[in-house]
Design a protein around this nucleic acid. Sequence first.
DNA 1: GTCTATAGCCGGATAGAC
DNA 2: GTCTATCCGGCTATAGAC
Lengths: 214, 214
Amino acid sequence: MERVCRELFRSGSDSIRIKKEETAVKNLMAILEAALNLSVKKGFDAMSLRDLQAESGLSMGCLYSYFPGKEALLHIMQDQGRKFVMGIMAEALEEPAPPEEKLEMAIRTHIYLSENMQKWFYFSYMETKNMGRDEAKKAIESELLTESIFRDILEEGEKAGVFSFEDANLTAAMIKAMLQDWYLKRWKYKNRQIHVDEYANFLIRFIRKALVQP
Amino acid sequence: MERVCRELFRSGSDSIRIKKEETAVKNLMAILEAALNLSVKKGFDAMSLRDLQAESGLSMGCLYSYFPGKEALLHIMQDQGRKFVMGIMAEALEEPAPPEEKLEMAIRTHIYLSENMQKWFYFSYMETKNMGRDEAKKAIESELLTESIFRDILEEGEKAGVFSFEDANLTAAMIKAMLQDWYLKRWKYKNRQIHVDEYANFLIRFIRKALVQP
DNA sequence: GTCTATAGCCGGATAGAC
DNA sequence: GTCTATCCGGCTATAGAC
């Protein structure tokens, strides 16, 4: 969280009117944390800036020296989160490896990442539709990029003769759908006391079974 | 749609102040259709009653003689839709059949139902979090009920020796996640020109592969 | 049954004191 | 850098004419 906020400050967004890095980062953290909590609880639209003021411990006027308006805040949250997530995914997959290992690595990385950033993933998914055309486009591109990571691994595996499937696109889409269930239906898995390791292990085996020739 | 609205009228909800069935049903259809369209486009919260007035062709005052307030409208939409969907699913699965056929029947019914009622399914999923405690509970129960339909079929199949899997609950959850992708990511499948039959056929084979012993 | 007009409130945004 | 006070527009909801 601190890493994200520091980067946001240093990116030199002219909407931040604060000069001192330490105070800026500290308050940005309070703001984004509060906004995420409230958005997940009641939805970004339903969250008023007065709610945000109370939850973050800052005043109305102070909020506005960190972002120029409510809509801009939504974009900041989406953008910064996306950059961070994409960075982690790319980092995890940069070393070459055989397709089976790479698939497992990609699945595990995504699940553990969405475990640690569960609120952001949930928020990002649910609020995509409320964004303007250009921002919605970025969200879609991001979804397709993640999906293409899996599609590429599948195709590599097919060439190498270790995977067999009908349609790489559809298979990748199904993998993505199953990954998303982990952060979208968290209440369900919590109630059933399914731990993240259990979910990841199950999913890897489930997918592997579907990837072999009958 | 007409069927749902007529039933809503006849259920004798005292919030409907209109006496003549034909006018009531006609207007209810206009209202629910408009509300669904607007909710899907911009979200239920962001839809104002003035939007609804314009889209439905009725006046502000008239709207209020069909439902007592905006929040009540949300509940009506959720409730009526849920009743209808559950009725169809139960109807489709009432006849006994071997587990393999039953599984296919359940998957197809759900996919084609969510194809025909795509907007309602999308709306219902996205707006669950905005509802009060009691209504949210009903939505969760409904999700678990659908899931249990699949879990029961899986367990029947395991006893009969035709299916083999690690965990019935998790497997059912994964099936549900893949069914949901069809109506949640409709833009994706539309762009790729994946027809509903293609999706259903693919999914059935994909799941079947994951249900056999390696 | 349906309409228009209006009450009353709440949210986003800003000005300017400290 | 942060606060309080205030403006203004849009929202839900209702009253009462037709």
